[in-house]
């Protein structure tokens, strides 16, 4: 077959036009998504740095603890394995000597020594877990919340090693069979990912307070708000009371503050 220069150019030109045409048509598809507009909910709660004050004086009976933990664990589909090895916890309790390591001494009041302290993720201003995560599955939101993107978690557990507060749990087993009552509005997790408290971002984004805070709103045992806002309730509580944080010497700057209180009853 032979072809002169003129024919060759004609065919090349037509092919080129065709190609450009196809590109223009198929280029339309992604157009919708690129133009897509997303926005926060109009009633979403905003902050510079969310923080919580835990007023241990207000935790008196077993019930005070239970309702707070239940509120969180039921809406977030937390499984109950019944053994501490596999345990998944977002909010839990531990003794003074484990909560404020190094602060205990032999003459500490019996009530404080035995009292269970309420623990959750500290949403540190300088979170160690975020620094070590190789996939950025855990990251800090602009409002200070240390968030988990379960979709990116590869289960390496570096974050668990890095967190000085034991706030993270790993799903060693499929959690689904161990969840009592599914909350159908919230996803579960699966075997092989790490999870923890998220300060209820899904509720804040819709204008609601975290579930644990709402569960004890009659006693105000948990006060939640923006420490970046001088007029906020947390700032007022922090100003009027002596508060301490867990392991401040590590420099992670936790956003959870404790009013330890004195010799009140420990359920």
């Amino acid at each position: 077959m032979s072809m002169d220069r003129r024919d060759f150019l004609k065919i090349a030109g037509i092919t080129g036009l065709l190609g450009a045409g196809v590109a223009a048509v198929s280029g339309k598809m992604p157009g919708i998504l690129e133009a897509a507009v997303t926005s926060p909910n109009s009633n979403a709660l905003k902050a510079k740095q969310w923080a919580m004050v835990i007023d241990m004086r207000k935790f008196k009976t077993q019930d005070d603890y239970k309702k707070v933990i239940h509120a969180c664990h039921s809406i977030h589909n937390i499984p109950e394995f019944g053994n501490p090895k596999d345990e998944i916890k977002w909010i839990w309790t531990d003794k003074f000597e484990h909560t404020f390591v190094g602060q205990e001494h032999e003459h500490i009041s019996e009530a404080v020594k035995e009292k269970p302290f309420v623990l959750l993720c500290n949403h540190c201003e300088k979170p160690a877990c975020v620094r070590v995560c190789p996939t950025k599955a855990t990251f800090k939101r602009n409002d200070g919340i240390v968030m988990m993107d379960y979709h990116r978690c590869i289960g390496c557990r570096f974050c668990m090693a890095a967190c000085p507060f034991g706030a993270r749990s790993f799903n060693y087993r499929d959690p689904r069979p161990f969840i009592k009552d599914n909350n159908p509005k919230y996803p579960t997790r699966m075997k092989g990912v790490v999870e923890k408290c998220t300060f209820c971002v899904e509720r804040l984004d819709e204008g609601l307070m975290p579930a644990c805070v709402e569960a004890c709103k009659d006693t105000k045992a948990l006060v939640f708000g923006d420490v970046g806002d001088p007029a906020s309730e947390v700032r007022k509580v922090l100003k009027d009371n002596f508060t301490i944080r867990r392991k401040p010497e590590l420099g992670t700057s936790p956003s959870v503050y404790y009013i330890v209180g004195g010799g009140e009853n420990a359920g």
Partner: peptide, 29 residues
């Protein structure tokens, strides 16, 4: 036609938008 071809892309964008940016409202075309 767009959903047929693009729903997986859309869901992917949704989850990034929700989880990483806190944007939960989608305004369609």
């Amino acid at each position: 036609e767009f959903m047929k071809a693009g729903h997986m892309q859309m869901l992917n964008d949704w989850r990034d938008s929700v989880i990483r940016d806190g944007n939960r409202v989608f305004v369609s075309s």
